[in-house]
C-alpha cells in the first residue's frame, strides 16, 4: 500500500457488546480501516462510522435495532476509548488512528 493511500484511511477497532454482535454476524471485534474523509470531504466522525457500519458491515436487515433517526437507537451506549461518547462530543467526535469504538446495548435481565 502506498504512503498516500494509507493516509486516506484510518485504522480503527470497533467492538459490539450486549447482544449487538448478533446484528453483526456474531462478530464482537472488528479491525478495519475507515476513510479519513466522509462523503462531504470532512474528517470522518462517529456519525459517519455509524452510517458506514449500517450500510457496509451490518448484514442483518433489522437496521432499526441499531440506528433510529440517523443515530444509534436509544439503549445503545457508544464508548470511545473506554469513555462515554458524551464526554467526547458524541457523534461529532472525529475518528483518530487506533481508536477503539465500542457499541454496547444496555441489558435488562436480572
Amino acid at each position: 500500500m502506498s504512503a498516500a493511500s494509507s493516509e486516506d484511511v484510518i485504522p480503527i477497532t470497533v467492538e459490539f457488546s450486549g447482544g449487538l454482535e448478533m446484528l453483526f454476524s456474531n462478530q464482537r471485534k472488528l479491525d478495519f480501516s475507515i476513510a479519513a474523509k466522509d462523503e462531504s470531504g470532512l474528517n470522518s466522525n462517529v456519525a459517519f462510522l455509524v452510517r458506514y457500519l449500517c450500510d457496509n458491515v451490518m448484514k442483518d436487515p433489522r437496521k432499526d435495532l441499531f440506528v433510529l433517526d440517523d443515530t444509534v437507537r436509544p439503549g445503545i451506549l457508544v464508548l470511545i476509548n473506554d469513555a462515554d461518547w458524551e464526554l467526547e462530543g458524541e457523534d461529532k467526535y472525529e475518528i483518530q488512528k487506533g481508536d477503539n469504538i465500542l457499541f454496547v446495548s444496555t441489558l435488562h435481565g436480572g
Binding site: 432499526d64 435495532l65 437507537r73 436509544p74 439503549g75 446495548s105 444496555t106 435488562h108
Partner: peptide, 8 residues
C-alpha cells in the same frame, strides 16, 4: 427507553 422490540 430502548425500543421494546430490542429488549430481550
Amino acid at each position: 427507553p430502548p425500543p421494546a422490540a430490542s429488549v430481550v
